[in-house]
Design a protein around this nucleic acid. Sequence first.
DNA 1: CGGCTACATAAAATCGTTTTAACCAGCTGA
DNA 2: TCAGCTGGTTAAAACGATTTTATGTAGCCG
Lengths: 354, 354
Amino acid sequence: MNDTSRRSGKIPTIRDVAELASVAPATVSNVLTGRRPVAEERRKRVLAAVAQLGYRPNHLAASLRRQETRTIGIVIPDLTNPFFAALVHRIEELAAESDYQILLMSSNEDVEQEAHRVQVMLARQTDGLIISPARDDISAFAHSAADLPPTVLVDRGFGLAGFDTIAADNFDAAKRGCQHLLDLGHVDIVLVVSDTSLANISDRIAGYRDALSEAGLAHKARVIVGGFTVDGCRGTIEQELRRADRPTAIFSAAYIATLGAIKAIRALDLEFPGNVSLLSFDDSDWMTALRPYVSAVAQPVDELAAESWRLLKQRLTGTGGELARVRLPCSLHVRESTRPPSTAQRKRRLEATT
Amino acid sequence: MNDTSRRSGKIPTIRDVAELASVAPATVSNVLTGRRPVAEERRKRVLAAVAQLGYRPNHLAASLRRQETRTIGIVIPDLTNPFFAALVHRIEELAAESDYQILLMSSNEDVEQEAHRVQVMLARQTDGLIISPARDDISAFAHSAADLPPTVLVDRGFGLAGFDTIAADNFDAAKRGCQHLLDLGHVDIVLVVSDTSLANISDRIAGYRDALSEAGLAHKARVIVGGFTVDGCRGTIEQELRRADRPTAIFSAAYIATLGAIKAIRALDLEFPGNVSLLSFDDSDWMTALRPYVSAVAQPVDELAAESWRLLKQRLTGTGGELARVRLPCSLHVRESTRPPSTAQRKRRLEATT
DNA sequence: CGGCTACATAAAATCGTTTTAACCAGCTGA
DNA sequence: TCAGCTGGTTAAAACGATTTTATGTAGCCG
């Protein structure tokens, strides 16, 4: 009755395997990691012992010794936002292909939670970090990039010193979106944003303004802020739509804002594009499920994920060069919610403004 | 020039702190963990040293020694499904409150990926697991529950031996949903599911059938399978709607199916509830953003998350009793997409079937 | 046949903590 | 006085792997 042969006692260690195979623990390690050659005959003995005991190396111990955990931390503001869910999903998939695992945390748009979570990740010796920070400023969780392991900033914090940063080309996307509305003949276009303190949003605002300026309509710019909740956005937009001189087009510059805009339009018994054209920033399956399909600017989520991972991995393997700043282009999907302003719309505006 | 005082050299260890404070490493540990009392004067010296060096305990080493990682693994089929995203989001939040972190992996509905991922988690010594398995059967990743650390199964795998299992009361929810349609006067109700091999789905099917049986309409049951993609569901449903004897109501028993159903209805230029009533399983913000609001059965996602975490934590702290099987009730939100069948609808059916 | 190379293996050091067990001083109660 | 306790302290062991260093063996050459 060999004591080492029972399956369900203690979890077997490399020592148990070594003993059963009559070799040294180092040999077992060499067989399993393949770092050094092991004679075929012993190799087989080791493998057999591993199988018999159901041995699984303790990754913790290996990480400690190797000073590498093959774990990356991801900190995002909110997993219930489909954009971030898709981002994380894709990064996880790619990381897994290279045998990296992810430790996930949501900051809930809160700087303090974020700071705490980053500290936790550091304590856990994550090899790298992918962060979409709550603010475009890392002072909440680090003095400088030097305090952190290799880190890439995605979507937010673009251009921050010391980091690889990746984001959609928000300026260009918003500009093209606004241009599309202008091309249709709209003049009174309101931009709805969740918040103005974030660079990705202000880039969208800038793009919007730039398009208007080029059309000589800089004075027509109108940006309203709805906050991070659907209801907040809906309320703000409802107010806007109740004005006598309401806009002929709404450009909702965030996922939440789009939902809010649609709900607001419905709540006031209006229609798009009849009463007001609607252009969404961020695409989703729902945009082609809604009654009139919703025109949208789509962020390249998969590419953002791929690029984030690519850069981080380069950094991890030391093959990275200069710090990168990557802007990925968005695509504009013109569908049914954006139309030229109707004569009724024009007339309404005219009456209101005179 | 004290060597220990420089900030940005090596990462400080407990030894460095001990040396600087002129105490033993064990004392530093006692101060930081609070397991044993330390004289006030030395306590302060240690704390000062910690602050000066910016020392952060290496969680890896602590985990190895303690045989506890305070990490739980979550394996779900698909993070891009809002249901799972919300579930993970909430679990993460709750776990963080108790200082647990989560290792996240998506199985992509694939048994082999799932098996691999569970193995990885085991190697990483996660204290516990929360899994929504790709099949209602764990044989893919373990022989029995005994091979795994404390594990709860959520949404899928309900009732599997050896696990705490949690799921929405799919049977009751589907039954009530179907009942609602019957109450409105519908007789030809088609149920659209993604797949039939999963228990949560077959429970919905059973609930649907049960409601029909009670109404003496068992023979009217009709279940169609659309697969795990939106387009797959859309195609199947389009086909169904093209039939001369098309149903007067569609009950889409999954998130994907609802999207598919809406797209199918639109694609054929039909309307709900005019041409066909629509009831969705799984609620979301979009249900009240669509033109006629979509009636829906809502799963209690937050409660599912809370209960999963509560049970797992009990198990982790050894305070759990008998293995639990928890069914959480769903709620039915009657909105605008479900209406009594119109006379036109009745007539169409009649003509088709005679 | 001594000495060198090459390779396989064993033994020991290491990673950074926590925990055990031993020690010590001071105090109590018999 | 001394055994027994208590609170505080620390050296050393332990956690489970990998890596370094040392050892042994065989083959080859001059």
